[in-house]
Design a protein around this nucleic acid. Structure first.
Lengths: 207, 207, 207, 207
DNA sequence: CATGAATGAGTCTTCATTCAT
DNA sequence: GATGAATGAAGACTCATTCAT
């Protein structure tokens, strides 16, 4: 038996919590924070409201836990993609691939995550808002340092400052994912990362 | 007298409507759709709630009218920037400039507009959603045709399909505006459009 | 027509407010603060809950207004009874009579008033609590000064300090009123104030 | 071994019950019946809620047991003070002293007890209410009989009927204890019972 | 026609009580 | 026999919408 195995009770609690969060995520991402009632979440998750409140102090708490954990996972996945040794160009490829993968396997979170990082979160005052964006900012800087490193090593040309390039790459991938989200058939997210990266790699205008 | 001149009565009504929408826009963009009450809008606009309901059938209607008209204005401004004769490269420059201008002089709308076009509109079910996005899609195609035309005339290299380039440019400019919105001092929107366009124009990797 | 006459609208509002307060008073005094719901008050007063909230910011507010106004009236009536010129002994008689009258014609308030002045208000944190007691303290001092004045003028013997005598008289009258409240037949509040005052006036033990 | 000694099991249960009641008393007297939850009591007493319900059928039951037992103790102490042989005047002195002692060493109960006997118990409908008051009535009659006996033996003058005197003495002592409770420094409960009794013993007005 | 008072369904949250383990 | 997780009814409060004046 594995030492990391939790006692049954604990495992059940985690499972419950997981179900609640999954249900809440589903509803929030479909209808928006204010349009989902605790009653509704509880009902759909097949718990009593009271039980919901045993796990989360209040509605906002639930929402924050939700976003926080999802953002953690995303952040982690993207961070790993660009860390470690290797050519900068490969890191960027990894990033584009990872972002596609992680988003496409978490469709319901995308809208919520984008709402928070792209700046349209008007329901939850601050706190999460701030926290997620901060981490997002940190990630952008890491991405920028990939560009910077590439320039230092003369592998990239200095066509713009590294941070702007990071912003550009991040926004482009998000935009493509959004298109895919709306019409998956018409706008598939490219399998080959270079389909996106070439926009940055190759110049539109001859030098 | 000008034939287009409206009777006093009509003009007054339009003025009233304008004030209501301006007040609503201000409140919605600051606090979010669900966090603003009709009472609050009426009070701040110095009308009675009943009067508000004379102009807009319900809260959603008001919101849709608001977004719709703002989107109209934006769309128009951006469309004009890329229409007409001239070099494609100049059209793109015009677009980057116009987008900067129009957004920076309508700060309070940005968040709402981005929320709708970038995909986080969870409060209003559909309808507006659809309409704005449709027009947004149409505009993206117009922008794409600028790239296409540039390619046809051998002014642009075929580094990616025109629509993808349009998406890329649009998302990059939006991302920069978002950064500016959060920290205007740290992230000014560039005066020179080439600061942004070079990301597309020049290639990161030598050919 | 009287200049003090209020416009119809205002009069109606006051009448509504009055009805709400009367209903609330009735319910609170019968069932206690926490055992009465705003819904219940609204229903019994034949208003919608929302209307209740138009007049009182919240439940506590309603309770405070209630107690405050009633305490005002009581305080006023008792104060008048012991003010002005005249023999101290007559003032005390007036006080005993007035207290009897005012309480017996406001039966439903007695319990609430006593609960506040006699110290068992555990539902409402502070504020009213404090305010009513303060005014009650002030009144006790006024009553004490009647005893003091009587002593100075050699009309009363110095059997205890004036404040203690005030406390004694006040508590005795309250106690009798409480008895009457429980069993009006068995424990009528005496018509002749001396029936109560003699307890203080005449000595139990020969001097 | 003593025959009255209870088996360990029983003793433990009694001890548990005692702790629950002590905790409940503390909380009720501080926050009021409705503002204390069974969870809170259980937690603070370090038992599970279920255990609480093993000892008391429901919340009201717990409250009644609490008040009942406290009232028993009070009643007993006061009864003893005025029973037995001895001069009536000494019994009254004993009563004043005993009431002071018993109240001051049970501060947390005072408010609850007074709330019940002085008529402001609005939380618990009837039952306890009735029972406590009944016993309180019985005690008042016992106190009255002390006055009566004194009058019969020509030791007291007939300044009022014995029951009224009992009510008066009881309410005065309670009032003084209440004052002490609020501001112990400013209003100490007198060490010498005559400080209070003189209000009854000596007449305010010369005969 | 404008007004804004009135409405009451709907929201979040608490807590007495039960019962499976 | 103790435990405390689960329940869900009930309560305070908000706000979109209506309609009498």
């Amino acid at each position: 038996m594995d030492g990391r195995e939790l006692p049954r009770r604990e495992r059940e609690k985690l499972a419950q919590r997981g179900e609640m969060m999954a249900t809440a995520l589903d509803l929030f991402s479909k209808k928006g924070y204010r349009n989902v009632s605790m009653q509704e979440i509880a009902e759909k998750a097949e718990f009593a409201v009271g039980t919901l409140y045993k796990f989360f102090r209040n509605k906002e708490d639930l929402y924050k836990a939700l976003l926080g954990e999802q953002a953690d996972a995303f952040d982690e996945a993207l961070r790993i993609a660009i860390e470690g040794p290797g050519l900068e160009i490969d890191k960027l490829r990894n990033y584009v691939k990872a972002k596609g993968l992680v988003f496409r396997s978490n469709v319901s979170v995308i809208r919520l995550y984008l709402a928070e990082t792209q700046g349209a979160s008007l329901d939850i005052k601050a706190g999460l808002d701030t926290e997620i964006r901060e981490r997002y900012g940190i990630f952008l800087n890491k991405l920028a340092s990939v560009f910077e490193s590439g320039m230092k090593r003369k592998r990239f040309r200095k066509i713009a400052d590294p941070f702007s390039l990071a912003v550009a790459l991040d926004s482009i991938t998000s935009a493509f994912l959004l298109l895919w989200l709306e019409e998956p058939e018409r706008h598939p997210y490219p399998e080959d990362p270079d389909a996106i990266l070439n926009i940055l790699f190759k110049g539109l205008v001859d030098q």
